[in-house]
Design a protein around this nucleic acid. Structure first.
Lengths: 111, 111
DNA sequence: TGCGCTTTTGGCCAAACCTCCAATTATAGA
DNA sequence: TCTATAATTGGAGGTTTGGCCAAAAGCGCA
């Protein structure tokens, strides 16, 4: 039988939908190319061609990554002439990079 | 030709390895069950059986999720008797939930 | 040692993901 | 209108993930 390891009643899980929506956001960040995109955009907006050159893969692939980030609300797009510019829509994600450092430290500690 | 949309020289990309390591952390958070685990652990440690009941799937599946979280340094484990207890190793991840809210708001805004 | 309980590991299969290419859409300029 | 450039969409391929089951490993206790 499972033991009550935490103070009983202290934790009430959120809705399954909430976890799914949250997971989608992290899933969007869970790819090195998309992380590079977010990092780049945290310094200013960029068009698709810029990002394509930065990442070094097919334009369609980058466009795909951008749509994934846009669908979860991390970036926003704006067409100006022939180009489409992307910028961060949720600036808080830049702070998350700091957390990555703490996680890395925790990993180092325990081996 | 790509246009220089950001202040030139303002952004220097990190190493590919850094992006890969960071992506692995987010990938670990990018699953609703694992997000539930993190949320639960933010209120105190839990043994595998507890988490299994909370999630409602096979024990082996939960164990697998936990190993993914452990490998990137988000959680740490400690055996006490027959049971293995898990706790958050990087407490900053709890703050990330707040960021999810901002991302959600950004998504709502733009539709 | 032998039994029971808890957790982990390995194998399997279906579903999801990533990348490219080709084709399409949107816009600017001649 | 026609052409060139920028970006998106659709489809094929190969790879990775997620779930279960069965088997193994670790621990406590008689």
């Amino acid at each position: 039988m499972p033991s009550l390891t935490a103070k009983s009643g202290a934790y009430v899980p959120r809705s399954a939908q909430e976890y799914r929506a949250g997971a989608d956001v992290f899933k969007a960040l869970g790819h090195s190319s998309r992380l590079l995109i977010v990092d780049a955009l945290s310094h200013g907006e960029r068009c698709v061609a810029d990002l394509t050159q930065l990442i070094g893969c097919d334009t369609s692939t980058v466009s795909n990554h951008l749509s994934i980030l846009r669908n979860v609300g991390i970036v926003a797009d704006e067409r100006r002439g022939q180009q489409v510019f992307y910028r961060l829509a949720a600036t808080c994600v830049t702070k998350v990079f700091a957390c990555l450092e703490e996680v890395r430290a925790a990993r180092e500690n325990h081996r």
